[in-house]
Design a protein around this nucleic acid. Structure first.
Length: 558
RNA sequence: GCGGGCGUAACUCAGUGGUAGAGUCACAGCCUUCCAAGCUGUUGGUCGAGGGUUCGAAUCCCUUCGCCCGCUCCA
């Protein structure tokens, strides 16, 4: 008998085609492919590395080298940093990662669902079958008896909690299970729920039921999401180190160093681009969730009372930036986090937003490109406490001091105290690999009208190859002229010279690589020193003088 | 980690127990005066890996790895 085959969604096939093109043209390869690959790790090929580098370079230039005007109307004060991947393990204790990234998990033996063990009690309180049980109890209150519990199991339990031991076989559970409600006041919630899930003859610790089906959960098992290694030759507990799960902590640890050496004043930002590592349970969706990935992070340090305006500033600024490098506003959205999904460091404060892109594999939903979070002073305070440096990590705000002295009304001691504080932090944290993937998805355009059938419409600033120089035919002096132009352009841009095969085939190759412009040398060039410019997106052609080629490209791609 | 699907050339696929194939791509040469023309040639596969059954395995069996989908995870 043939199984019903589910056809992949139309969006899925676009992703399949993009993945195939990335492989074929050398954008992205699976890491260590000749050994069968390794899940969650990806390599960038010759075109991919140019694309990703263009993204990172644009970010560095726009954030660190020539940032614009900030929320306060002043020029933004930004500096860069490059920290190590491996740091003192105490860093991860202070940051909360050593705890947060070591979450024990449990699987349901009946329905196979996976849960964070520490979330199970909360999930159980909200579980449909538990609610139903309570409802059955409340309807009868004092008259409630064991038979009613059996009735519930038969009527509602089989639907809502088919995995629950009490439902699967009522006799399996001991008589004390029937005290579930009678002892509601004296026993803990979890203890009561466990009684319904634990057969009387069962030899072992009480079983925690599954919030989904009531089945038995496995004992909590460790899922360490931080990669471990050892510093030094001796591999014991004392030499254990971690690959950083985010680049941010390197910035916080160097906060004092930067303030002391680079004359920055609050408000100012420290930026870093670098690799981070997370041992994700399930890497998925091409490069979207990788175990090794690159972040582009800003920690922007501000006076606590200016958090709202700076948070809004960076959220909007970063949203505009992604559009400026070619992501269409139709595929981007800003999403403010709900209170209950806020990270541990952002429970209070101005908020957290995700800048999200509508990837083909999330469509019609969105996937995170960048998170903008008000981290308050969580990190600096944590490092002050764990390092023992305490108030020495505080920032002294001389500008504020001058202002308060001029205003009068406070003693010098009061002012000094007010001017010494832990700056709050607004953190725009972007994924370089996710950004690159978004650029690829955005650029991918089916076009049956052209020979290649597909064209990668990269923003010229992002395009891996900025231009190709093509002699129309490989004779009559055309290759020589093309080579001269090529040699000149390559001193500034990544350009290609291609003389082989028909010009149509070369255009097609360039369409797949996303090259925005082709300069073609033809017989007319020999007479009047003009070349044709072929525009990738419109297929339009115009003639410009050879001497104008450099200026043309400079204007278009920067 | 659980369940389902899939692994043959760089890509798309054919090959159901008997000598591993086709087209495309790539590369070289000829040709070619604006969008993958044509001709000639070349590179490239121990059929994901390991083991088993068999005279003989891409094909049958077991194990394993990888990919895709769902659950889940993504402080």
């Amino acid at each position: 008998m043939s199984e019903q085959q589910k056809q992949p969604a139309a969006t899925g096939s676009k992703m399949d085609k993009l993945v195939a093109l990335c492989r074929r043209k050398g954008f992205i390869f699976q890491s260590s492919e000749i050994y069968g690959g390794i899940n969650g790790f990806w390599d960038y090929g010759p075109l991919g590395v140019e694309l990703k580098r263009n993204l990172k370079d644009a970010w560095w230039k726009d954030i660190v080298r020539c940032p614009g005007v900030g929320a306060d109307g002043e020029m933004l004060d930004m500096v860069g940093l490059d920290c190590t991947i491996i740091m003192n393990p105490k860093v991860w204790v202070a940051s909360g990662h050593a705890a947060g990234f070591n979450d024990p998990m449990s699987t349901c033996r009946q329905c196979k669902k996976l849960f964070r063990s520490d979330h199970v009690p909360e999930l159980l309180k909200e579980a449909e079958w538990v609610k139903s049980l309570f409802k059955a109890y409340e309807e009868n209150e004092s008259k409630f008896n064991p038979q009613m519990l059996v009735n519930w199991a038969k009527k509602r339990g089989e639907k809502l909690a088919p995995g629950l031991a009490f439902v699967r076989g009522i006799k399996e559970v001991g008589a004390e299970a029937f005290d579930f409600f009678a002892n509601k006041e004296t026993d803990g919630f979890m203890e009561n729920v466990r009684r319904l899930a634990t057969p009387v003859k069962y030899d072992g610790p009480p079983i925690t039921p599954c919030p989904n089906c009531g089945g038995d959960l496995t004992e909590p098992r460790q899922f360490n999401l931080m990669f471990e290694s050892h510093a030094g030759a001796v591999q014991d507990e004392s030499s254990k180190v971690y690959l950083r799960p985010e680049t941010a902590q390197g910035i916080f640890c160097n906060f004092r160093n930067v303030v002391d050496t680079s004359r920055v004043k609050v408000p100012f930002g420290i930026a870093q681009v670098g690799k981070a590592f997370r041992n994700e349970v399930t890497p998925r969706n091409y490069t979207f969730r990788s175990r090794e990935f690159e972040q582009m992070e800003i920690e922007f340090f501000i006076r606590p009372d200016t958090a709202n305006e700076w948070y809004k500033f960076w959220r909007d600024e970063r949203f505009k930036w992604w559009q400026s490098i070619g992501l269409s506003s139709a595929n981007l959205q800003l999403r403010e986090h709900d209170k209950d999904e806020l990270a541990h460091y952002a429970k209070v404060g101005a908020g957290t937003s995700d800048i999200e892109y509508k990837f083909p594999f999330t469509d019609p939903g969105y996937g995170e490109l960048e998170g903008v979070a008000h981290r308050a002073d969580f990190d600096l305070k944590a490092h002050a406490q764990h390092s023992g440096l305490g108030d020495k990590l505080k920032y002294f705000d001389q500008e504020l001091q001058v202002k308060l002295l001029a205003a009068g009304g406070m003693s010098k001691e009061e002012i000094a105290e007010k001017c010494k504080y832990f700056p709050h932090v607004i953190e725009p944290s972007a994924g370089a690999d996710r950004g690159t993937l978004a650029l690829l998805c955005e650029a991918y355009t089916d076009d049956p009208g052209r020979p290649s059938g597909v064209v990668m419409k990269f923003h010229p600033r992002m395009a891996p190859i900025k231009a190709a120089v093509l002699p129309l035919v490989d004779k009559d002096g055309m290759p020589e002229i093309a080579e001269k132009i090529y040699k000149d352009l390559r001193t500034t841009w990544n350009v290609q010279l291609d003389v082989k095969q028909s010009v149509g085939k070369r255009y097609a190759r360039m369409d797949e690589a996303g090259t925005p412009y082709c300069f073609t040398v033809d017989s007319q060039t020999l007479e009047d020193q003009t070349v044709t410019v072929r525009h990738r997106d419109t297929l339009a052609q115009e003639r410009i003088n050879v001497s104008q080629v450099r200026a043309f490209l400079a204007e278009k791609v920067g």
